[in-house]
Every structure is written in structure tokens, then in C-alpha cells.
Amino acid sequence: MCTACEDLVDPKQVKLEEIITKYKHENGPLLPVLQHAQEVYGYLPAEVLKHISKALRIPLARIYGVATFYAQFRLVPSGRNVINVCLGTACHVRSGAKILETIEKALKIKDGATTQDRRFTLEVVACIGACGLAPVISINNEVHGRLLPESITEILAKYE
């Protein structure tokens, strides 16, 4: 980094360095570093992956392979609110697919996409373990259970 700009240090960059320093000498540092980097940046920008590759001395292709293997990691920024529609067995049996379809039609996006106004990102997940309340969705980790298709509009309205 250019020394003249030292006072312009990116706080996210500082946090990333802290994360790397913390895990660098642990066994198997890659997943925790990626998880925490994603917490800092909201997603995993290419530049961050390149930096992690150099700092941890792990080939970039391997890091990209790991980042695309696990469902948790995103390589593009998400919307302001992330909707996880559970389609685990219990939710499937209790018509979770109809909930998904209703949300897809309401937001005019498909699984994995983000609305143009960046208000919502829609993701299908396999099970969030709230099977007793099926069908469920979670928005920003807040679980909504015992859903009916007609209750979706009201729930979505709560998130800006």
C-alpha cells in the first residue's frame, strides 16, 4: 500500500488482516478465514480471495474450488434481506414448494437471484431444522413457520 495514503486504510482490510493473522498458524485455516471474510464483506470479492491465497499460501484455484463447493459462500453481493426458503422433507410434505412459488412470483426472481432494487435475495435451502413448524422460511436468520401461501405478502412487507 502507498504510504501517502496510510490514513485512508480500509477498515474492512484491517479486519481481514486480523482474521488472517488469527488463523494463519492454525491447522486448516481456510474455511474459518473465508467465513469471517464473508462476514466482513458480505460476500467474497475476487480481490479478497486473491489476498487470502497469497497470505495463506494456498493456490487460488483451490480456494475458488472451496468457495464454490459450500453453499454458504457467495461470490456476488446479496440483497439487503436474504430469504432462505426451506425445502427439506418436512417442508416439502407440507407444501413448501407452493411457498417458494408464491415468493418467486411475488418478487419475480428465481432461486439464487437478487431483486433489481437489491431488496431481496432468494435462496432455497435443504433444511433449517425447524421441521416442527413446516413449512418455514427464514429471512435474515429470523424463522417464520407454519406458513400459508396467502401469508407471504404480509411477511415480505416487513423487510425493507
Partner: peptide, 21 residues
């Protein structure tokens, strides 16, 4: 903390995951 992959319930995959692969 796992990162979202059903197959990591399999022992050797779980270990690969801890090892950062």
C-alpha cells in the same frame, strides 16, 4: 462451523472440510 454441504456428514468429507478442502 460447517459451510453448507450435506456430503460433509460423511466422515472423510467432514475431515477434508476441517482441513480446508
Amino acid at each position: 462451523a460447517g459451510a453448507g454441504a450435506f456430503v460433509c456428514g460423511e466422515g472423510s468429507a467432514l475431515m477434508a472440510s476441517i482441513e480446508g478442502r
